[in-house]
Design a protein around this nucleic acid. Structure first.
Length: 932
DNA sequence: CTGCTAGCATA
DNA sequence: GTATGCTAGCAGA
């Protein structure tokens, strides 16, 4: 559509910045002959050419501007220090394309505007206001909804990507409010991209409803007290913020641009210029846009008109020779489907010659122990990959090489420790191949772990890594297989699409590694953690998981039975007291019975406002009423039964008769592992009934369970890092550290410390590790806050080094934005510099805790490496079967027990020389419970 | 069927 | 008051 029929001259304003990312992500990873990234340039040029044609027409004349954000802070940053704080930095591959983009847009004849300190939106707002006042029909091309607030009789929006056009009626249709209420609308819902909060839990629906009811934001705010529900409550909480939010989302239309546009504010200053063909020719030459160059040469040869042609936006090389494919990300790459033995042999040669090869398996299951291979992909250089399907079985699927033949061919390479390999989450692929009898060797790198070490606080899926580091978006698993009920197994995915997907996975893994590894290696501490800790631990975890642990399902079944009986009794008693049956598993129904029917006092509320029935509350009520105690006991038994005694037997792998947990190595930001399916790191121990679950974790005949755990490891680390003399001495002398703490705080001797004093000191010690304040201590000791404050003060007076550590850590974290473990692992704390109080306090507590928790994690990982290394070197059959943060559990053949009980604690204690001794204690038994 | 909350298990 | 993962209930699709 063109505006040729409108009587007013057109002013076309392009929000260049809003299209940068879109073009970048939409385009394949194009490169100039010398390797310079050109995808975003290509996308922008195609779009600018088309826009000029569509809106202005191909003849001379017309007014326009292409506006970009400048780098650096703007006035909004000064208004609000969290503005755009969550935004990821621009990928390097995009950043380098910005200067060429400005250049080429100018060559195409466009006035280009980029004003330091002023955002593109505000510049556009100003240009639009002035243009409209000067009698122009203003068309704003943007992908950003925020600019809808500028729409009026003279101003329309057009989204060039989607071809959507918005006038006043269009805005009402799309957003449900008129353009002059868009600011109010945006203020209410907030802007997550720019990190501007709105009203919590209020989205487009509620915002539109409120604005319809109350006319405007001011109307809504005035009516705040009358608005019911959670949304109303959140609105009242947000009242102080909203004026500032409104200011942030309001586009400024009176910026001073005169220093940046010669002749401004005359609209004539924005006249479109003729295309600079010579300059453009040279530009196309430099960046390898061959098709456009030819086209321009042809035009120059004919010496014809100024017509600018418009190849499709997604026409990757601009030749127009191929129709644009819906999946543009696969263009310009070469992925081969390997269906015969010759091609497989050819790829094997390439793999064997490669300095580093990426591989990825596609399977029929997420469970690493049960997954069967459906296909394997490889990449040895960017842009190229092979996919070897072996088990696609949909109707019409081509004949594939048999899995056995493929593995037989590849085995020499897969098992060659001298053949360097990289993968994304190599632990999984190692399991999968092990399921088929292949022991993969030669893993050099894992992009999952590179990313985890580099920025643990982010997510590490290959999809995200490719976006973050390659600026690339591949096919997603969901694209291929769908989700939920409609999900199909990978074996039913069309082989051509599977080739693209799996090929991309391998190829992107290789490329992510090429980008990420240098960044890890640039920081010596990170490289050390990656190479000397995470990579070796990954292999050990694979072995632990694969070995599994023996669980006696019979013992658990019996416990389940006993639990069920006791729960029935409790239920009957509860129904009698309540006078009616109710679901003891429902906090909601418990609340109804307790607080409404029986009229017990409400002690506290949950986050969403319901009366809380948590343990603390029920404990308190149990002193005065009979029902809460029954509920408490029932709840704890239900937890045991539901989570452990019923569930664990179901997790026994029928093929091995064992339970194989999965350790997540890249989840916890402090460096800890986490365990899932099942979680073996939260098996009960505190209560007697719970503890019995551990009786089911047994050693097979001729073996024993050995548990070795670090004693007080985090407190020892605190002593080491802080250098506090009192704490150091307590450990050096081998004292009971809680008693020693109590003796200091209560000004008595170690021998005279009462058990209550020790309990207090223990709570303080733990609290300190968590960055606790007086409130928290008071809460957990059940004392008043002043008393708690007093304890803390006395503690810090006696252990001044600890106090100094806390203060210095907070200061250093605020200064650097991260904290470190003893071994150089970094924990980013983006919110420690953030304005908002509670969040910053939270980050400060993390700053205190993370070095201790993280160093403990580093130490036990080093212990795993040391112990497994010693076991292998000595040719022992002892197997490491679990890790529980400060504890390692082994399944030990009887004859190896002397070696293990001697060596393991020594190895654990010897992984680091701190200023206090490390101590590991050993327990031995027929099951895990008795090994403590 | 999916996603959320409340509650609770561990270090 | 740090770091996790899992379950039942329940609401909205």
């Amino acid at each position: 559509m063109s505006d040729a029929n409108t009587p007013l001259p057109t002013l076309l304003l392009v929000d260049g910045s809003s299209y940068l990312y879109r073009a970048y992500h939409a385009m394949p990873d194009l490169r100039s002959p010398d390797g310079f990234p050109t995808g975003a340039i290509h996308g922008l040029v195609a779009m600018m050419k088309r826009l000029r044609d569509q809106i202005i027409g191909s003849g001379p004349g017309g007014h326009a501007a292409c506006v970009f954000d400048a780098s650096g802070p703007t006035f909004r940053d000064a208004w609000y220090d969290q503005y755009k704080a969550q935004r990821a930095p621009m990928p390097d591959d995009l950043r380098t394309q910005i200067a060429p983009i400005h250049e080429v847009v100018r060559l195409l004849g466009w006035p280009v505007l980029e004003v330091p300190g002023i955002e593109a939106d505000d510049a556009i707002g100003t240009l639009a206001r002035v243009g409209a006042a000067a009698g122009h029909q203003v068309v704003i091309s943007t992908g950003d909804k925020d600019l809808a607030q500028l729409v009026n009789e003279r101003v329309t929006l057009i989204n060039t990507m989607s071809n959507e056009r918005l006038d006043i009626a269009g805005v009402v249709a799309k957003f449900g409010v008129a353009p002059d209420r868009i600011i109010d609308y945006l203020t209410l819902i907030g802007d997550t991209v720019d990190n501007v909060p709105g009203v919590d839990k209020v989205g487009p629906k509620t915002a539109v409803k409120w604005l319809a009811e109350h006319g405007s934001l001011d109307g809504v705010m005035a009516a705040a007290n009358g608005i019911k529900g959670v949304a109303g409550e959140n609105l009242r909480k947000a009242l102080d913020w909203l004026p500032q939010g409104r200011r942030l989302v309001t586009v400024v239309t009176d910026c001073d641009l005169s220093a940046h546009i010669a002749g401004w504010p005359a609209v004539e200053a924005l006249a479109l210029q003729p295309v600079n063909r010579e300059g453009l020719l040279d530009f196309y030459q430099r960046y390898g846009f061959k098709a456009w160059r030819k086209e321009l040469e042809a035009e120059l040869g004919v010496g014809g008109s100024v017509a600018v042609t418009t190849p499709g936006l997604f026409d990757a090389d601009g030749t127009g020779a191929e129709p644009a494919k819906p999946d543009n990300s696969t263009l310009a790459r070469s992925y081969e489907t390997v269906l015969d033995a010759d091609r497989l042999a050819a790829w094997l040669e390439r793999l064997q010659a490669a300095p580093l090869a990426a591989l990825d398996t596609e399977t029929d299951s997420l469970d690493p122990m049960r997954a069967r291979i459906v296909g394997i992909s490889f990449a040895v250089q960017p842009g190229e990959a092979a996919y070897v399907p072996v088990a696609h079985d949909y109707a019409g699927a081509p004949d594939q090489l048999p899995l056995d033949a493929v593995l037989a061919t590849l085995r020499p390479w897969l098992e060659d420790a001298a053949a360097p390999k990289v993968g994304q989450n190599i632990k999984y692929d190692t399991h999968v191949l092990a399921n088929h009898g292949i022991s993969v060797r030669g893993w050099q790198h894992d992009t999952l772990l590179e990313s985890y070490v580099f920025e643990a606080h982010l997510t590490h899926s290959l999809e995200k890594l490719a976006e973050r580091h390659l600026g690339r978006r591949g096919l997603s698993y969901e694209d291929l297989c769908g989700k939920g009920v409609n999900q199909i197994p990978f074996s039913q995915v069309d082989i051509e699409r599977a080739t693209t997907y799996s090929g991309e996975d391998s190829e992107m893994t290789l490329q992510v590694h090429q980008v990420l590894h240098p960044r890890v290696a640039a920081v010596p501490g990170l490289l050390h953690v990656y190479r000397a800790i995470e990579m070796p631990v990954s292999l050990i975890l694979q072995r632990i998981e694969r070995h599994g642990v023996l669980v006696d399902a019979g013992v658990l079944a019996q416990q389940s039975h006993q639990l069920a009986e006791r729960m029935m009794q409790l239920e009957q008693q509860a129904y009698e007291i309540a006078g009616q049956p109710f679901n003891l598993g429902s906090p909601k129904q418990i609340g109804e019975i307790l607080f409404n029917r029986l009229g017990l006092p409400v002690k506290k509320k949950t986050a969403s406002g319901a009366p809380s029935t948590d343990e603390e509350v029920l404990q308190e009520l149990a002193a005065d009423y009979p029902l809460p105690a029954r509920i408490l006991e029932h709840r704890s038994l239900a937890k045991l039964k539901g989570t452990y005694t019923d569930k664990l037997p179901l997790m026994v792998n029928p093929a091995t008769g064992r339970v194989h947990t999965n350790y997540a190595q890249a989840v916890a930001i402090t460096g800890r592992l986490s365990s899932n399916d099942p979680n073996l790191q939260n098996i009960p121990i505190r209560t007697a009934e719970g503890r019995r679950v551990r009786e089911a974790f047994i050693a097979p005949p001729g073996h024993v369970i050995v548990s070795a755990d670090y004693s007080q490891i985090e407190l020892r680390i605190m002593a080491h890092i802080s250098g506090d003399p009192g704490l150091t001495r307590a450990f050096a002398e081998g004292l009971d550290v809680h008693k020693a703490t109590a003796a200091e705080v209560f000004n008595t001797t170690v021998d005279a410390v009462t058990s209550e004093q020790r309990r207090y000191a223990k709570t303080i010690n733990f609290g300190l590790i968590y960055g606790m304040g007086a409130f928290g201590l008071a809460q957990s000791l059940g004392i008043d806050q002043k008393m708690a404050r007093d304890f803390i003060d006395r503690y810090f007076a006696r252990f001044a080094g600890v106090k100094r550590y806390m203060d210095e850590t907070k200061a250093s974290a605020a200064d650097k934005g991260y904290v470190e473990t003893l071994f150089g692992r970094r924990i980013e704390l983006p919110e420690i510099r953030g304005g908002n109080g509670p969040r910053r306090s939270g980050a400060e507590r993390q700053a205190i805790n993370a070095p201790m928790q993280g160093t403990a994690a580093d130490l036990i990982k080093l212990a795993m490496i040391a112990v497994q290394g010693a076991l292998d070197a000595a040719g022992k059959r002892t197997a490491m079967v679990m890790q529980v943060h400060d504890e390692l559990v082994f399944e030990v053949p009887d004859d190896e027990l002397p070696w293990v009980r001697e060596q393991v604690p020594a190895l654990m204690a010897g992984v680091a020389q701190l200023s206090v001794p490390l101590l590991a204690e050993v327990g031995i038994g027929p099951n895990w419970e008795q090994a403590h």
